[in-house]
Amino acid sequence: MDFLFATAHAQQAAAPQNSAMFNLLFIGGMFLLFYLILWRPQAKRAKEHRELVGSLGKGDEVLTSGGILGKVTKVSDDYVTVEVAEGVELNLQKSAVAAALPKGTIKSI
């Protein structure tokens, strides 16, 4: 019956050698990877977006996160007014601005 049911034989456990140090290095490596892959790039993007929103001024051409192109006509503390067509203006939160475009982009489209 040994060929149907394998017999398990107990082995003597090896003495742990530097397992605590290995575990600490492993956990430290995981935190390092987390920092380098996730946290640092996200913080960099957030900083760039804060700088973009802070530097908005009248006459800038912007792209919103909803895909609307327009020219900034008025800037307040939390909102910008964007002209999307002649005589059509939208009030948007500054955080909705995704990118500032080079001058003349809207006319070239």
Rank of each mutant, 00 (worst) to 15 (best):
M1L: 08
M1T: 06
M1N: 07
D2I: 04
F3H: 03
L4R: 01
L4M: 03
F5C: 00
A8E: 13
H9E: 13
H9Y: 11
A10P: 02
Q12W: 08
A14R: 14
A15K: 14
N18K: 12
N18H: 13
M21I: 07
F22I: 10
N23Y: 11
I27V: 15
I27T: 15
G28F: 13
G29D: 09
G29K: 12
M30E: 01
M30H: 05
F31G: 01
I37H: 09
L38G: 14
W39N: 11
R40M: 08
R40A: 10
Q42V: 12
Q42C: 04
Q42S: 15
A43F: 04
A43G: 07
A43P: 02
K44C: 05
R45P: 00
R45Q: 12
R45L: 12
A46W: 01
E48T: 05
E48F: 03
H49N: 10
R50A: 13
E51G: 05
E51L: 15
E51V: 13
L52C: 06
K58T: 12
G59R: 11
D60Y: 08
D60T: 10
E61C: 11
T64F: 09
T64E: 11
G67C: 15
I68P: 01
I68A: 13
L69T: 06
G70H: 04
K71R: 15
V72S: 03
V72E: 01
T73I: 08
V75P: 04
S76M: 05
D77H: 06
D77P: 00
D78C: 00
V80W: 00
T81C: 00
V82C: 02
E83C: 01
E83T: 01
V84A: 06
V88A: 04
E89M: 02
L90H: 05
L92Y: 12
L92M: 12
Q93N: 11
K94Y: 09
K94I: 05
S95C: 02
S95F: 10
A96F: 06
A96E: 12
A96Y: 08
V97P: 01
V97C: 07
A99S: 15
A100G: 06
A100C: 09
G104W: 04
S108V: 09
I109E: 10
